[in-house]
Design a binder for these strands. Structure first.
Lengths: 340, 340
DNA sequence: TTGAAAGCGCTACCAT
DNA sequence: ATGGTAGCGCTTTCAA
């Protein structure tokens, strides 16, 4: 039943030539005789030869595999990013090995170890919400394995990064709310360690400052991405003696959860309270009212991240760490449309 | 800069023992002296030893890697499934290598080849919409590599399969429409080759038959999953002299696209036309009106698929091909709520 | 309890 | 143009 895969040796014996010759013929080496080459190719086909990638990897010290570690696979942003990575990798003859940290630092650490053990040629990572230290990544860097952060990046390590201009996106979002007449704009931020949380929060603050709107600490909350958490924080905001007239949420997921609470409490969006999210997930277009958001080119982020890591893998000598910052776009929808 | 990874040899030299001893110590072999073992573990830690998984794979003829091929990574159903697979695999010490066929048969074929070359220990696959023949999978089976289909399965090959009861789900969906008073129920089906298209279509037909509603061929259309295609087909239905009073779509994606066209034409859902989808993607809960749909336990499908393939990998002798059929659940929302 | 050596499948160097 | 051989890092058999 179980048939052992054909090896070069099988082909060599079958043809009465040496293993070296077979190897050369299959890899298209120029010095091999045309008839021999042809015979080898035919035999390889006949015997269903499939090169043993494991053996090639051991020999060449290259696995042609890119590791990806993401907080989760299920959110649209990450799956779109991974899609971009995988397509670019496939185009260049690379494979992808994927792990999810499930937002756990401990899992992220073991994922990194696994990727090292697997001898991936490069590692793409978007950090878990718990990640505050980067010691687990030092072995990667010490071994000279190309490392690229995307979206949830690390500012401290000297690597390439691919992200959007979170500050600018948040700034535009907040300014948009100000322009529509909102003055008590709350911000539900994400886990404090995350680069995206910090940068979006800063964009929010800077927009307020530009328009001389005082910052109210009680209007700025940090939430996890869990539904219950968002609900609690939303209630907190709405229960304030002087509740906000708008909420800018760190992402669409949070915005949508907040909207559920707001609607549940019988308040009108955008009349009573305007909403803006971040990312432009499909849900934002379909929810009622449709959600104003800041679009992040997720697929592009993946595509570009993969392109950069492949460059670094294949031309390590010309490598210079780069921070690639993609533009966001404010998409105005009904959740913030009201007379200014 | 670039440091070569530590090998067993490095540790052996460092300690003045043999490579065999180091190997045994690290793998927890019982026969090794306690002091020696301790010294080895210490040295391994000091030198940042990370086992070379590639070498282990070559040696053991096992990669501890499961291959996954899906039509795309971006749709919620597949990313949820993959999440389930990855979590189960990780729990059992396996890695996942992921490819998307992008719904192309040719790409699927090359993906399968890549997986073989990579010597994955098992392959999980959900077929592309173009796949009508299965020759590309024979080498997998011939080599005794465990193969499990999920969702878009192949009925012809003697392998395990994990899916939902598409027929029953479609039947319940259609019957629900009938019970709310719809009599001209259209069905926008998917690509004809797909198992899910066939089974859902049959469920629809059987529900009509049970309730003595004549089948109208003009109300059954096959569509790709592309937006434009769905739009064209929806217009075709609405332009009929006697248009449908309900549409059951092969999945939520198609349902949502159809809803956009219907709303664009100024028709009311569900008053003028009721809608039911399939899968229960997040969008279905948020779209206006909220979409009645048949829930598929995507994460579970992945989890169970992974569990089964791991069983087959680790206990090949007890393997018996199974078809695991999970239950669906009809989720009634506003797109089909009207007086019966 | 430890060591030497073979070999997994492949590539590449050194012969011829 | 072709063949022999070493060796990538590891595990495991056989000897000591």
């Amino acid at each position: 039943m179980k048939k052992e895969p054909t090896t070069l040796r099988d082909i060599a014996i079958n043809l009465g030539v040496s293993i070296s010759t077979v190897s050369r013929a299959l890899s298209g080496a120029p010095e091999v005789n045309d008839q021999t080459k042809e015979a080898v190719l035919k035999a390889a086909k006949k015997l269903n030869y499939e090169p043993n990638h494991v053996a090639q990897s051991l020999r060449s010290n290259k696995t042609k595999t890119i590791g990806i570690i993401v907080p989760n696979l299920i959110s649209h942003f990450f799956s779109a990013t991974i899609s971009g990575i995988q397509n670019m990798a496939a185009e260049k003859g690379y494979n992808v090995m994927i792990c999810q940290s499930n937002e756990s630092f401990a899992t992220e650490v073991s994922n990194v170890q696994m990727m090292m053990s697997h001898r991936v040629d490069g590692l793409l990572i978007s950090l878990s919400k718990e990640t505050e230290t980067y010691d687990h990544l030092h072995p990667i860097l010490n071994r000279g394995i190309p490392l690229v952060f995307f979206d949830r990046v690390c500012e401290e390590l000297n690597t390439s990064r691919v992200m959007v201009d979170d500050h600018d996106g948040a700034f535009k979002a907040t300014e948009h709310l100000i322009e529509t007449g909102c003055r008590r704009i709350a911000h539900i931020s994400g886990p404090e360690q995350l680069s995206i949380s910090k940068n979006r929060r800063q964009g929010y603050l800077d927009a307020l400052q530009k328009h001389n709107i005082p910052v109210r600490e009680e209007l700025i909350l940090h939430s996890s991405f869990k539904e219950e958490d968002v609900a609690v924080h939303t209630h907190t905001l709405l229960d304030l003696p002087n509740p906000p007239d708008a909420i800018f949420a760190v992402n669409d997921l949070v915005a949508v959860q907040a909207m559920l609470v707001i609607k549940e409490r019988g308040m009108k969006i955008p009349e009573d309270i305007a909403m803006v999210g971040f990312t432009n997930t499909p849900v934002s277009a379909f929810i009622e009212p449709s959600l104003t958001t800041v679009a992040q080119p997720a697929y592009q982020i993946g595509h570009i991240s993969a392109k950069h890591i492949l460059e670094q893998i294949n031309h390590p000598q010309d490598f210079i760490p780069q921070s690639i910052v993609l533009k966001t776009e404010l998409i105005v929808r009904n959740s913030s449309r009201r007379k200014a």
